[in-house]
Amino acid sequence: MSTATTDKRAKLVTQQDRRRQEVRLGWMLAGPAFVVMLLVTAYPIAQAVYDSLFSLRLTAPDERDFVGLQNYLTVFSSTDVFWRAMLVTILITVLAVAVQLVIGFALALLMHRAIVQLRGSLRTAILVPYGIITVVSAFAWYYMFDINSGFVNRWFSWVPGISEEMDWFAETWSALAVIIASEIWKNTPFIALLLLAGLAQVSDDLLEAAKVDGANWWQQLTRVVIPNMKAAIMVAVLFRTLDSFRIFDNVFIMTNGDAGTEVLSLLAYRQSIMRLEIGLGSAVSVIMFVCVVLIAVVAVKGFKVNLAEGTGSNAGQKKETK
């Protein structure tokens, strides 16, 4: 009797020991990566929050005055700089993501249905824009439309509004159109691939049932396919929205913010890195960070986008489509 209880207790102890060992090993293995991630983001953002409360200019580093929220007030009251940049950023994000979603879905459907002989080459072609450097893509689009070297004006001079002398990057709307086009081209492949994984999860039985019930192609798509891959769509849209919101590279290359195309990232860059106004630049940086967090929170809470589940289930349930 007594030996049995001690045995049990011993077993319990070793179990606890083993558990404790597992926890320790887990953190030993995962800890370094975790700490590095915190060091390269949490620390700088905390520093940015702190810096944003000071009037600090690197050209005069000794005149560091605590100004409280003054920098934020300055930023928020500059209608023609900050709010304009905010508006442009939102406009680019909304338009680019909307078009990416449509083209990406079409590409995903194509790849999903494609005959075996074509699958590999379609995927390869689509991955090229994904892998190409954003700056290279920006130059490619810039040179196509540039008034000196571009061929677009010559090719499309028959279109009303386009002439050989048209300078795309001198007007806000035409410059934004090219910026958005390059953003769409570069990032549609990513959305297409996520949606392709979502399509693979839609069960064929459901589609068969819909077909038997006489649903046409469009009805199958809108009533069966899209509702069943809502999770994948939401995850793709959220990732693209957050990424487009920090757009920087294409704008920097094509217009450098001229012609009324300045976006938030560029504004922050100009304030801090170019003009060395660390206080003001940090305020803009912090505002951007808060915006990104807000978008993510609204998406996760409001639209119930479950990022971890949505992506995790892809891995678990993904049907082999090879």
Binding site: V40, T41, Q47, A48, R246, S272, I273, G281, S285, F289
Partner: peptide, 16 residues
């Protein structure tokens, strides 16, 4: 970390 705006951390890093 992956959705973090790079521009938000670049100013403090620049300084540091």
């Amino acid at each position: 970390v992956s959705i973090f705006p790079v521009i938000s951390v670049v100013t403090p890093l620049f300084n540091l």
